[in-house]
Simulated assay, not measured.
Amino acid sequence: MICLETQHFNINRILLLIIGLWPYQRSLLVELHLILLFGTLLTFIIFQLTTFITSECTMDHIYKVLSSAFFYICFAIKYNSFLINANIIRSSLKQLQDVCNEIEDKYELAIIEKYGNKAKRITIILLLFGMLYQFIFILLYIWPYIHRIFTNKSRLHFSPYILTEYFIDEEKYSYLIMVHRHAASCIGLLTIIATGTILLTYLQHICALFSIAGYRIEQAIDVLQKGGFKNEQKSCKEIIRAVNIHCKAMMFSNFLISNFEGSFFFLIAAGMVCLSCNLLRIASFTGNIGQLVLPLLTLSTLYIYLFLSNYTAQEVSDHNEYVFATIYNVRWYMAPIRIQKMILFLLQKGTTSFYLILGGIFVASMQSAASLASTSISYFTVLYSTRQD
């Protein structure tokens, strides 16, 4: 038997524990931890938006503030979505574990193991990318100190990569502001990685369930071919088991995604604003490398998230189609009439495509990912032409 929490979700569990979002063992200490981290993230967003109060609201200023503020708003949306859907995450893991507990075939267990290991590899790669992002982000702010050491300059020249207004003496409390800034960045990155990878791990296991359904269909026809009509009853049972696990995979994926509809809607909207504004910052590059690095990091993070999430959703749809392709390809026409009728119903069901719907309106697929990327570039083009005018 496979224990998903310890074998396939162990890295996700650690990441969610760090940011206080693991849905189990929610003690008072964990709640305080959660409030502290979420509060740090929200206050950093607020102190970016307060620059509109004290500074002249030119178009350049607006784009610069929104390009970073909406990046952290994306983090906050993801954090809040898992905060309010803790019961959904817990229930989803229980449902998936119950399905896995019913699996006894060694080949089927190997399929679960294969997709679980794939999800773990992707999680580790994304975690390394997040560490690289945070390292570069910190390096941007400590570079003036390093530059002063090698050039023997007495004065430091800081570039405001992220504009903030704390309504205090920022030179006097520079170290506290620095801690707040980097803590918010670290919390945000951990949030987007932890929440994104656990959803990815769930979807990879759904792909595994679809693969098992296809395997059971193949086994059902093989039983008939090897044993003749004597094994008709056993073949019927295999088909029923295939249909059951296929239905459970579809119900499980719909249950998981439907509870995040509102969060995905606001995440897509905030992401579009962030992408467009950061593209505008890159187009407005004036020679300061530091001012170019941060928008590039932000764009790479959002585009990776956009394409990886849609690629995983596309995999779910492709695995569902694989089940029906398997039914078409097996020699079902040589089966008894009773089994042919069962397979006919399956083939009719396969005429309707299965997609994951994000935000209630967005069909998750690679085509949709490309469409969203194109939309962000279109918005940037409109904004840039307005700025030029």
Rank of each mutant, 00 (worst) to 15 (best):
T151H: 07
T164C: 07
V179I: 15
H182G: 09
A183W: 00
M178R: 07
I138R: 02
S159Y: 02
Y173G: 12
Q134S: 08
I168K: 12
I124R: 13
Q134G: 06
S159A: 05
I168Q: 12
I124F: 12
D169P: 05
Y175Q: 15
F150M: 07
Y173T: 11
M178V: 05
L163E: 14
L163N: 08
L127Y: 10
Q134D: 12
Q134L: 15
M178T: 13
Y166C: 10
L127V: 03
W143V: 01
H180F: 01
Y175I: 15
Y161S: 04
H157S: 12
H180S: 07
Y141C: 04
E171N: 15
I162K: 06
Y175L: 15
T164A: 09
H157N: 06
Y145L: 13
L139V: 04
E170D: 12
S159L: 06
I146N: 04
K153S: 09
L139F: 14
F135D: 00
F167L: 14
L127G: 14
R181W: 04
I162P: 02
G130T: 00
L156T: 09
L176G: 12
Y161L: 13
Y133V: 10
P160E: 14
F158R: 07
L176Q: 10
V179G: 02
L139P: 00
L176D: 06
L140W: 09
I138K: 00
L163F: 03
I162F: 05
L132P: 05
L156E: 06
I136C: 03
R155D: 10
Y175T: 15
H180P: 01
Y133E: 02
E171P: 02
I136W: 01
F129L: 11
F137G: 00
Y141A: 08
Y175M: 15
F150E: 04
S154D: 08
H147Q: 14
L140T: 05
Y166E: 06
F167K: 11
D169R: 07
F167R: 06
Y166V: 09
M178N: 05
M131P: 02
S154M: 03
N152I: 00
R155P: 00
I168T: 15
S159M: 03
L139K: 00
A183M: 08
L126Y: 13
F158A: 05
A183L: 12
Y173A: 08
I125Q: 02
H147P: 02
F150G: 06
I149Q: 11
Y166W: 15
I177C: 09
H182L: 12
R181L: 09
L139M: 10
Y161N: 04
G130M: 04
N152Y: 11
E170A: 09
H182W: 04
S159N: 02
L128H: 05
M131A: 14
I138T: 11
R181S: 07
T151K: 04
I138N: 07
I124H: 05
N152E: 01
I177Q: 07
Y141L: 11
L127A: 02
I138C: 11
S159H: 08
Y133A: 04
T151M: 03
I138Q: 07
P160R: 15
H182F: 09
I138W: 09
H182D: 02
L126P: 02
Y173D: 13
L128D: 03
I124N: 03
I136N: 00
F135W: 03
F135Y: 07
L128M: 10
G130E: 04
Y145S: 10
L128R: 11
T164K: 03
F129S: 11
Y173C: 11
M178C: 09
Y133R: 01
